[in-house]
Amino acid sequence: MMVSMNSETSRQIARGIAGALLLAAIWELSARGLKLPAYVLPSVSSILSGMVSDAGNLFAAAQFTAAEALAGYAVGCLIGMAAAVLITMIPAARAVVLPLATAINSVPVVAYSPLVLLWFGMGMASKIVMVAIAVSFTIFLSTIAGLDRVDRRSVDLIRSFGASRLAVLWRLRLPTALPLIIAGMRVSTVRSVLVAIVTEMLGAYGGLGWVIYQAVLQIDFVKVWAAIIVASAISLAFFGAISFIERRYVFWK
């Protein structure tokens, strides 16, 4: 069983890499073949050499952005799950919290950025807050959907045996909800890095978004793409890590 799992995983990885190589080849060929100028599309090879020559800077920026995204992600997940559990435990709160959360989330995250920058300054705090806002709602919605998936009859059955609300939550609702929660967490990984980068573009002391912003203004498109590729790598690693946890602990159950 374990062996087949591994061979499947390695096949997926191999194919993922093959897909990326295919894209890179098409990209390189069209950039060179059509002689596209760098401000339209730089070739993959020039981006890679740009990444190598600027590795130190990019690495520092990547660490900065990753730290913001991770911190915001953790805070956002906790808030999202806590809020979902809370309104499941206290049905009366649902009528208040759900519309409120919907309202807050339906405002594009970027709209809050000037306010958040104003309130939390240009440092890491504002990015962490922005990421947390963006992530918490995704997690909140997924968790609610998951917790609601429980069969009403099962709840009634367990409760007839004298189980408390908390026990129902822990024994029944959370395990049932887990696949959906993790799916939400998986989607949020990508969003967290993105929101951190977009907020950095509006004002920051460092990070990949800051590098991109500066590079656009200095017309250094190779650097823009280099930073984008580093950002994608972070998101992908993050996404991969959550997918790994998901496969290991959720479907394994």
Partner: peptide
């Protein structure tokens, strides 16, 4: 010297 954000509030 620090980068300036959109606001002059600081």
């Amino acid at each position: 010297i620090q980068p300036q954000q959109v606001s002059v509030t600081p």
